[in-house]
Every structure is written in structure tokens, then in C-alpha cells.
Design a protein around this nucleic acid. Structure first.
Lengths: 198, 198
DNA sequence: AAAAATCTACCTACTCATTGGTAGAACAAT
DNA sequence: ATTGTTCTACCAATGAGTAGGTAGATTTTT
């Protein structure tokens, strides 16, 4: 037995992340999943239904990952490094962030979808703000501005790096940015852990 | 007399930056410029011709802006703040970065266009690397990793912030990220100029 | 347990608007 | 008179979405 719905979600996600929301069609998806176009409409009546489902699934996966990082990693900088590593998978696979893709086409999207995407980002910012605040309290993080602004900056930097390095230097380039980002948050004098400088 | 070509470039740029490359059509453009669809093809035979012209014009404007910043502003951090302020215009107008938009839809674009976009980003990175290196030499900038990686990080952070804050907190949010970014580059102990903390 | 009704998943075969793009005529400027 | 610009009038292909039907599994009724 084959879970067509899950297969549709999987393939649609990679199509969107590769070519954008407006850049892929039900026909494309039908071909990669080996199903008729009309059958997709059975699972996802409209394209924006599909988009909503994609964001929900993507968001849920990130939720799980964030919780796991929080549970498994005590150090703030390491948490951020682990968070950054989540994006790395996208760079390696040549896929943009689903929500970044949708955010960019925002004006052509239904408002409800835009709200979902906004929530996705806000959630990440809140998570990071928390991580940073704990790190500051523990003395393992040096934040110049308020943690909130720094949290926004971290998400922005990673989203931007994923966007850019997919075209430029690939994983190599992304790792460099991640290292620079983490180094900037470390208290003075402490060197990086990833960029085996020692 | 009316410069139709320039008008087409201007309106096409805002359309792309608002809705994405695949998300706008010659019909849309024709309507906003008040011209027939076929007349656009006279100026830009194919859609990718138009895209190339858009990137070229955009790139040229940034070239000019970067040169002006370099000439008019001696301090490295202030240069970066001024560079960031270029993006702010986009946030205020609700427009994404043209090259970010195109980068995201990369896989659906002609390779030559992708090359143009890559060059755009590389140029910015090189410019920032230079600014940072000079700043380090002058003692006005503290770079933890190599300047090259930090330069990539700065572009990524600004591109990401533009992408994100257009949906979230707008100019307010963007300015926060820019401030956090600049603060992170300042030598220890020196506070921000924008975030009137004092 | 058998029969009837319903549901799920998929199909073929459309609709109809929109897509990028073309051909060739009309108009405008020099 | 020629060149550059815009037009009308198309085209074939593709877009999302619909109509209506079929095979098989499940549930409900008897």
C-alpha cells in the first residue's frame, strides 16, 4: 500500500523549494508522482490547500527539530549551531527554505498562507530569543543588542545564507557563514568549535 | 515623449519584486504600463531577455550606490550601516530584493540568468570583504572569523532580513536586525549609534 | 452472512482563462 | 523613405479546476 497523500506532499515540497510556488504546476507534480492531475485535486482541492498542507508539515518538522535540539544540547552556541545545521540540509540538497520561497512570492499568495508563514518565522525567532537569553544568563553568549533583535538577525542570516549559498559556494559557503555567525555571539577570546582552528 | 523601455523596466522590476518572476506576466506588465502585450515583445523579445535587463539595471544601481558609500563614508561600520540602509528601501516599499527573488526560483531560470545573479552577490561580498578588512586594519571593526566569511554573513543577514521583515515587523524589524548586525561587528565596549541606548 | 449503501481513490475527458510568443499592418519620427 | 514603435489579431501550449464515472474497500442494514 502506498500513501499517495504523503508522496504528494513530499514531491510538491521539493518542487516548490526548487522552482517556487508559481513555478510548479499540478501537471509537474502529477508526473513525478505518477498519478493523474485530477487525482491530486482529490487530495488537495486547490493549489493553496496544498500550500497550506505543505507549510503545516514543514512547520511541524521544524517544531520537532527545535524541541530535540533544546532537549539534547545544553550550550546556547551549540544550540544555534545545531539550528543552523538544519538549514544546511537544504543547501546540500539544493533546496531553498519552503517558507522563504513562499514569503518571496507573498503578494501573489492568499493572506491566510502569508499568516502561516509569518507564524513560522515568529516561532523560530521566539525560540532563538529564549536560547540567547539563557545563554546570556549562563555567560556563554555575548549579545550586544537585545536578544530579540539578535534572534531576528540569526534567522535572517541563516535564511539569507541558504538562499544565497545555494547559488554560490554551496555547503562550504553556508558553513562559513554559520561559523561567522556563531563566532560573533561567543564571549570575547573564545574561538570556534566547528572551524577546527586548533 | 515617453521612454517606454525605461517605464517597462521600472514596472517589471516592481512586479517581479512583489510577486516573483514566474508570478508576473507580460499581460500584467502591459496593463500597468498601458501598452499592448505585443509591444513589450518589441522591447524585450522574450521574458528572460527582460529578466537579464532587469538584473543589469539593478546591478548597475547597486554599483553606483556602493561606490558612493565608499567615497562618502570613511568608517567601516557606518559603511555597512549605509549598505544595510539600501535594503531598507525595499522593506519600506514592500519589495523584495530582485536577485533574491530570482535566486529562489533559480532552478526554473535560464543558466545565464543564474550566473548574473551569482555575480551580483559575489560583487557585494567582495565589496564588504574589503570594507571589513579596512575596518579591521583601522581598528574600528572586530571580525571573529575571516573577513570573507563575515562578508558573506552580512549579505546573507540583510537579504534574509529583507525577505522576512517584509512579512513580519517591517522597517522596524529590519532596523533592529541591522543594528544587531553592526553592533556585533563593533569592538567590545562601543555601543550602537542607531539604537539610542544612552 | 448477504445485500445494499456509502466512501475512497483514482480515472478520462473535458472547460476556459491565461501563458509567452508571432505576423503583419498602421502609425510616427527623422 | 526609412526606421522605430505600437497596434490588432492571432497561435499553440499550459494553467488550475470540474464533471462525471469506475473499481474496490468499508459500513450499514436486513
Amino acid at each position: 500500500m502506498r500513501d499517495t497523500r504523503a508522496e504528494l506532499l513530499l514531491q510538491a515540497e521539493t518542487l516548490v523549494r526548487r522552482r517556487g510556488y508559481a513555478g510548479f504546476s499540478y501537471a509537474d507534480l502529477a508526473e513525478t508522482v505518477q498519478i493523474r492531475k485530477a487525482s491530486i485535486h482529490h487530495h488537495f482541492p486547490t493549489k493553496s490547500d496544498l500550500a497550506h498542507a505543505l507549510v503545516a508539515a514543514y512547520d511541524a518538522r521544524y517544531d520537532a527539530a527545535l524541541a530535540e535540539i533544546r532537549a539534547g544540547e545544553p550550550d546556547a552556541i551549540e544550540r544555534i549551531a545545531a539550528y543552523g545545521a538544519l538549514y544546511l540540509g537544504g543547501v546540500e540538497a539544493g533546496l531553498g527554505c519552503l517558507c522563504a520561497v513562499l514569503a518571496i512570492e507573498g503578494d501573489a499568495l492568499p493572506a491566510s498562507l502569508r499568516a502561516d508563514i509569518a507564524r513560522f518565522f515568529e516561532k523560530h525567532i521566539a525560540w532563538l530569543e529564549n536560547v540567547l537569553a539563557e545563554g546570556v544568563a549562563a555567560g556563554s553568549v555575548r549579545v550586544s543588542a537585545e536578544p530579540r533583535a539578535t534572534a531576528r538577525m540569526v534567522v535572517a542570516a541563516l535564511e539569507g545564507a541558504l538562499l544565497m549559498e545555494r547559488l554560490l559556494a554551496g555547503p562550504e559557503g553556508f558553513r562559513g557563514t554559520l561559523a561567522a555567525l556563531c563566532d560573533g555571539l561567543r564571549p570575547a577570546g573564545v574561538s570556534s568549535g566547528r572551524t577546527d582552528t586548533i
